[in-house]
């Protein structure tokens, strides 16, 4: 028996919008720790890891570990039927081949049940080792989204370079080139508007902008994003979900031949 009640149902709606472009089908894993997902895109270039900790739910019952295969487009269709202020409850019986999403309006005058068929998905779980990153950049998520969108109108790839001067995003295409430098800026009114660079040593890596743009679908989940870079590792682009967990995207770099 599984029953997860999330008062801030809009969070789940945003989570689906954040991952459905990258991944088509995925297993949602439910355990005492929380509600989680790990999945790669079809070309195995990017990986998304989601965690919603059990403590973040108003009610969390998961009698035994359960893995539920879902088509994310279909989940998104179902969740789009929930109002933005609705309370969402996810329910599944042991051994059932369906999951139920229940939507309650805030004043309880409307209750809807949407039952969705589950699917068998062969997914590979990958071990992601803890790593020391050469540089971690924290910046407003909207700013990062804007940079990725702007650069993708010029080129297909971005070189992200971190030095003590700041973080530079560079691209080149048929019509020209572009460079955007963001300097560390801690002297802002609100901490979420700051750009903070923690650098152990300078690092420069090249990534496909198409994937980074896809990651920015998570922007509504968090006002800030952190970008962790090391020369021999995929970049980690993390959006924290307040009090609950995170959506982390891993993207393999482009490698010079």
């Amino acid at each position: 028996m599984l029953e997860l009640r999330l008062v801030q149902g809009s969070l789940l709606k945003k989570v689906l919008e954040a991952i459905k472009e990258l991944v088509t089908d995925a297993n949602f894993d439910c355990s005492a720790t929380g509600f989680s997902l790990q999945a790669m895109d079809s070309s195995h270039v990017a990986l998304v890891a989601l965690l919603l900790r059990s403590e973040g739910f108003e009610h969390y019952r998961c009698d035994r570990n359960l893995s539920m295969g879902m088509n994310l487009g279909n989940v998104s269709k179902m969740l789009r039927c929930a109002g933005s202020d609705d309370i969402i409850t996810i329910k599944a019986d042991d051994g059932s081949d369906t999951v139920t999403f229940m939507f309650e309006s805030p004043n309880q005058d409307k209750i809807a049940d949407f039952e969705m068929k589950l699917m068998d998905i062969d997914s590979e779980h990958l071990g992601i080792p803890d790593a020391e990153y050469q540089a971690i950049v924290r910046m407003p998520s909207g700013e990062f989204a804007r940079i990725c969108k702007d650069l993708s109108s010029i080129g297909d790839t971005v070189i992200i370079s971190v030095t003590k001067e700041g973080v530079k995003f560079s691209t080149a295409g048929d019509i020209g080139t572009a460079n955007i430098v963001c300097r560390q800026n801690k002297t802002v009114d609100k901490p979420e508007e700051a750009t903070v660079i923690e650098m152990q040593e300078p690092v420069s890596l090249t990534f496909a902008l198409r994937y980074l743009n896809s990651f920015t679908k998570a922007t509504p989940l968090s006002e800030t994003v952190s970008i962790s870079l090391s020369s021999d590792l995929p970049v980690v682009v993390e959006y924290k979900i307040a009090d609950m967990g995170y959506v982390r995207y891993y993207l393999a770099p482009k490698i010079e031949e």
Binding site: M40, H44, V45, A46, L47, E124, H125, L126, G127, I128, P129, T157, T206, A208, L233, P234, Y250, A252, P253, K254, I255, E256, E257
Partner: peptide, 14 residues
């Protein structure tokens, strides 16, 4: 040209 890396060459299956 740079070649696109693959996640599976960085993270191993558990």
């Amino acid at each position: 040209d740079a070649k696109q890396g693959n996640i599976l060459s960085f993270f191993k299956k558990t």
